[in-house]
């Protein structure tokens, strides 16, 4: 990018073969971050496309919305599964909580761009301010996800009657509450498995992102980047953080809307 201070100065004396060049006009770190993100796009895409493949191999729930009962015979309707909100026990609030999570993550992505923009201007105070907001957004999102998982695992008050093969290879019909990797009250076992793997893998990325954000926030605050002469680290971590947001946009669509 033209407005960015480059990490490595290209020496005109040494010429193109002397080293210290920036191929594609991006520094080594930024280039590698992009290629890492490309590989990560494939990983997440494989997860989500697997979700789609397993989703179409089951019939969807076709009955009335009011009488929905979880069963491993058909795929559940997401707005009937994800309808809880903290402190509103038993109130049907479809997708409100996950909407809030999306809102938080998009906003933290916005404050991240503002931090990158402040970095281009070498404005340490602004960088620290926006990094702090981004960090808080990341932590808020993770906390929401912890609640979401906990609710998903513990399940509803009534549970669902599910016929399945239990851990000692016996076919049983019993009331199941919540979810684990073998059985769940919402739908086929694959539904909870995919939920755990995909949102878990995304949550893992967010966790790493929060660690990196803290590092960048700290280093910006104590003036490491100022002494280094550029704020490129903010930009690289920013790329990663936007990617996490990007993945969430897709997870949101596939898991909670479709």
């Amino acid at each position: 990018m033209s407005t960015t201070a480059t990490a490595i100065g290209v020496s005109s004396k040494r010429g193109i073969w002397g080293g210290g060049n920036e191929p594609l006009k991006a520094s080594y770190g930024k280039l590698m971050m992009w290629f890492f993100l490309l590989s990560d796009i494939f990983t997440f895409a494989a997860f989500l496309i697997t979700y789609a493949a397993i989703r179409v191999s089951y019939p969807g729930y076709a009955g009335s919305m009011d009488t929905f009962q979880g069963s491993n015979e058909y795929w559940p309707i997401p707005e009937l599964v994800f309808d809880a909100f903290p402190f509103f026990h038993g109130v049907h609030m479809p997708l409100v909580f996950v909407g809030l999570m999306t809102f938080i993550l998009i906003l933290s992505s916005v404050t991240m761009v503002l931090a990158v923009e402040a970095g281009h201007r070498n404005d340490r105070k602004d960088v620290v301010k926006w990094m702090l907001w981004t960090l808080l957004g990341g932590i808020a999102f993770l906390s929401c996800q912890a609640w979401e998982w906990s609710h998903f695992i513990h399940g509803s008050d009534s549970g669902s009657v599910i016929t399945y093969v239990n851990s000692v290879n016996k076919l049983v019909t019993e009331t199941v509450f919540g979810a684990n990797l073998a059985v769940n009250e919402y739908g086929p076992a694959a539904f909870a498995q995919l939920f755990f793997f995909i949102t878990g893998f995304h949550g893992f990325h967010v966790t790493i992102g929060v660690v990196l954000l803290f590092l960048a926030f700290y280093q910006a605050a104590v003036g490491v980047y100022e002494r280094r002469g550029h704020y490129e680290m903010i930009e690289k971590i920013g790329l990663y953080w936007h990617f996490v947001d990007l993945v969430w946009v897709f997870v949101f669509t596939f898991f909670y809307l479709i």
Binding site: M1, A26, H242, D245
Partner: peptide, 30 residues
């Protein structure tokens, strides 16, 4: 839903990650 999601992805990649402002070969290699 999928069309709107891809539209959102375009905004994130172009406006937030500034992919459009990178050199063309980098843009296409992504």
């Amino acid at each position: 839903f999928i069309a709107l999601t891809i539209w959102k992805a375009k905004y994130i990649m172009m406006d937030f990650m500034h992919l459009g402002e990178e050199a063309k070969p980098l843009f296409y290699s992504i």
